[in-house]
């Protein structure tokens, strides 16, 4: 077995090791991604409010 094959084989535990790392990747990326999306949407709300206010003051 080549070195790379052995790496992915994980001594026969591939079906336990790789899903663990995959699920970790998903959870970590989702944490970062969701927090950034929510921040952008809050920023957009603030912008909309400023625009609405400017329209009100200066129709």
């Amino acid at each position: 077995m080549s070195e790379i094959q052995a790496f992915f084989h994980m001594g026969g535990y591939a079906w336990y090791v790789w899903p663990s790392f995959l699920i970790t990747l998903v959870v970590l990326v989702a944490n970062v991604w969701l927090s950034r999306i929510q921040f952008r949407s809050a920023l957009l709300d603030a912008k909309r409010r400023v625009v609405a206010q400017a329209k009100k003051n200066n129709p």
Partner: peptide, 25 residues
């Protein structure tokens, strides 16, 4: 990041938010 979101939401009516460069562009 989540703290910034929380602050923006709670302080949405504050004048400093409206004056932020990323908001008032």
């Amino acid at each position: 990041i989540r703290m910034r979101t929380g602050i923006l939401k709670r302080e949405s009516r504050a004048s400093w938010v409206a004056q932020l460069p990323e908001v008032n562009n």
